[in-house]
Design a protein around this nucleic acid. Sequence first.
DNA 1: CCGGTCGTTGATACTTCGTCTCACCTGAGA
DNA 2: TCTCAGGTGAGACGAAGTATCAACGACCGG
Lengths: 142, 142
Amino acid sequence: MSDLEQISLELEARGYRVTPSRRAVIAAILARKNHFAADELAKRCRGAGRATVFRTIRLLSDLGVVCRVRLDDGSPRYLASRSGHHHHLVCTGCGAVQDLDQCAVAGALRDVADASGYEIEGHWLELYGRCSACRSSTAVPA
Amino acid sequence: MSDLEQISLELEARGYRVTPSRRAVIAAILARKNHFAADELAKRCRGAGRATVFRTIRLLSDLGVVCRVRLDDGSPRYLASRSGHHHHLVCTGCGAVQDLDQCAVAGALRDVADASGYEIEGHWLELYGRCSACRSSTAVPA
DNA sequence: CCGGTCGTTGATACTTCGTCTCACCTGAGA
DNA sequence: TCTCAGGTGAGACGAAGTATCAACGACCGG
C-alpha cells in the first residue's frame, strides 16, 4: 500500500473526506525528499488553493504525518515525518533533516522540574549541524 | 550604575551611538518585568519608530542583553536577559520566564553527534510548564 | 563656520507565514 | 430530489519582521 493510500485511510478513519485537493497536497508532500515551505508547496501544488494547502498541512500535522521544523534562522518548514514525540537534526549546509530517536532532554527535564518547581508540560528542541557529506565536501575548500 | 547606563557604555564600546531613540527603547525594555512582543513595545514606546524598535532589539540581542523566546504557540517574544548560552522555562499559565543555568542537552549532544555523523553547531531549546504559583492557584479550581 | 561623511531615524512599502471570511461546491443521506 | 454539513478557493486580514529612502545630525577637516 502506498503512503498516499495509507494516509487516505487514516483520514477516512477519522471522519475526514479524502478529496482531490487533499490527495493533491498529500502527493505533493510525499514527493518532497526534504523539508518545504508551506507557501512554496501552495505555489507548486496545482489542484489546491493556498488556504487548502495550509489547512491540509495542519490536518496532516494533527495526524502526525507531517511535522514542523524551524530552521536555524527561525523560518518554518514542514516535513513528511513519523508521528510521536521526536526531534530533528537539521543540516545547515544542505538542509537535510534527520529524525532523532531518543529525546535528548527527557532525563534532564526531571532535574529541571525539581530545581525550578515547574511542572514541565512540553518542550521544543531543534539541533543544527553539518552532516557528514557537507563536512567532507567543504573540508578542504581551497 | 544603572542597567541603562551599563548598556549605553556597552553600545559605545562597540562603536554604536547612544541616541535618544535607543535610550527610549532600552528604557522601555528594562521597564518590562516579563517578556514582550516587539510590535507591542513599538506601539507603547513613544520616541522611537517601529523600525527603530526592531533594529534596536536586534542590536541588543547581538549584545546579549535581550533574547528571543518562542512561546508555546510559536509566537516570538523578547526578554531582557543575561548573555551567554542558556535556555528558558516558560510558564504557560502566567508567562513567567525562568532562565536555566545549565544547558540540559549539552551531554546528549555528544551522543547525537557520534551516532549521526553530524557536527553539531547549535541548538534551540525551550521548555514549557506551569510555575508553582500557577499550579497552586488552579490546583482546586472549584 | 562650512561642508562632507556616515551612522541613525522614521514613514512606509513589502515579504512571509498563517488564519479568517464568505460564497460556492459537492456528495451522502433522508 | 432536497438538504445540509464538510470542503474549497479567492482574497482580505493580521502578525512579525525587513528593505528602502529621504532626511537628520554628530563629528571632522579645512
